[in-house]
Design a protein around this nucleic acid. Structure first.
Length: 249
DNA sequence: AAGCGCGCCAACCGCAAGTTG
DNA sequence: TCAACTTGCGGTTGGCGCGCT
């Protein structure tokens, strides 16, 4: 299917955005709202591709972005979510208010991979490195191997916990696999793991019995037409708490 | 002080999914 | 039903800054 280029490359700027361009984009979106990215550059007087405008807005200019370092809680939550979802950065970002998929992806590649490797955990499969062979290989080799590995699709985010108590409901291996292969099914992970991961956000969470709809679970909460559950979507900390419930579930 | 290597991150690219006529 | 178009996503790249020699 012949696809037209998203923009006329001859008349578009590339590279870093200038303050003037940022200002134009911000003021245009303030006045007209997001959307119609293809026509936005022309309307806003920008010599940029629509995709580039969208990316700039989402990753850098959006007012609700949380700048600055990731907290330890965010780190752990990203690790857990990656264990569940794989490289679904947009879904992961949906559970981290104020963070973008690009930011999380970069952070994963630069920090968390290394962190997991130093813990002896394969960052792609979330399994102990020793169990996938080559336990004594150099960290860089592990990174390279991890980037080529297939998506995890296993609920091994609780690997550390499995090593000890095994936590709540889910049994090992076979059951874990089915859990993550089909996210339409109820998610069942040990409460202990998620409580550790989201201790700050979930500090008030004691019950793991609450059922969560798929919309909520995949970050679609707030989409009224898609989600029938009645929980508020306003409060970010509540979102984290609800999600921690869901992964407890 | 200069050169070099490395890490970080903003931005680009290509593809897939979704939408429209 | 299907082609054209738009939007969104994930992988990758390249430039910049910083630390080390």
């Amino acid at each position: 299917m012949g696809r037209s280029p998203c923009c006329e490359k001859a008349h578009t700027n590339k590279g870093a955005w200038t303050k003037e361009e940022d200002q134009k984009l911000i003021s245009y979106i303030r006045a007209h709202g997001e959307g119609c990215w293809r026509s936005l550059p022309k309307a806003a007087g920008l010599f940029r591709c629509g995709k580039s405008c969208r990316l700039r807005w989402i990753n850098y200019l959006r007012p609700d972005l949380k700048r600055g370092n990731f907290t330890e809680e965010e780190d752990e939550l990203i690790i857990k979510l990656h264990g569940l979802l794989g490289n679904k950065w947009s879904l992961i970002a949906g559970r981290l208010p104020g963070r973008t998929d690009n930011e999380i992806k970069n952070y994963w590649n630069t920090h968390i991979k290394r962190k997991l490797i130093s813990r002896g955990i394969d960052p792609q499969t979330h399994r102990p490195i020793s169990s996938i062979g080559g336990a004594t290989t150099a960290p860089q080799q592990q990174v390279m191997a991890a980037t080529k590995a297939p998506p995890p699709m296993e609920a091994t985010s609780c690997e550390e916990n499995n090593n000890s108590s095994g936590g709540g409901g889910a049994s090992r291996d076979g059951d874990d696999r089915s859990i993550c292969l089909d996210l339409n099914l109820s998610i069942s992970l040990p409460c202990q793991a998620s409580e550790e991961a989201t201790s700050a956000a979930a500090s008030t969470t004691s019950s793991c019995s609450q059922a969560i709809c798929l919309c909520c679970h995949l970050g679609l909460r707030g989409s009224d037409q898609a989600c029938s559950c009645h929980q508020s979507t306003e409060d970010n900390s509540q979102q984290l708490r609800i999600f921690s419930d869901s992964i407890c579930e």
